[in-house]
């Protein structure tokens, strides 16, 4: 085993240790510890937004800025791909 492999194995072990440590201190599967926001959205979203699907009312109304950022990321990706490849497309 060369020196490079040894470094790789040691760093992998450290990573696995930290991930295991993080996984051991997670809470029970499917149990939330603070649910104020969830309860508010579940009980109020049908009146305030009018949508039956609470996930969509969060994505497009309560947290609209996140969707705006997602749209910006997609736009930046499209612009980057077109800038790289377009010179070859139109001779």
């Amino acid at each position: 085993m060369s020196k490079r492999d040894l470094v790789g194995v040691i760093s992998l072990l450290i990573l696995v240790g930290f991930l295991g440590l993080g996984a051991a201190s997670m809470r029970e599967f499917g149990v939330v510890d603070r649910a104020y926001m969830d309860d508010y959205i579940i009980s109020h979203s049908q009146d305030e937004v009018g949508a039956n699907n609470a996930v969509t009312s969060v994505v497009f109304d309560y947290r609209g800025f996140d969707t705006l950022g997602e749209a910006t990321i997609l736009f930046a990706a499209v612009v980057g791909v077109i800038v790289i490849f377009r010179r070859e497309v139109h001779e």
Binding site: V49, G50, A51, T56, F60, D61, A71, A77, I82, R86
Partner: peptide
């Protein structure tokens, strides 16, 4: 129902259709 949500869904859907299709087309 739901106010502006269907219109926003339509706008984002149009954007995602055109964006992903144009990425693959140009490539």
């Amino acid at each position: 129902t739901a106010g502006t949500l269907p219109l926003m869904n339509l706008a984002v859907g149009l954007k995602v259709i055109a964006g992903l299709a144009s990425i693959v087309l140009v490539m």
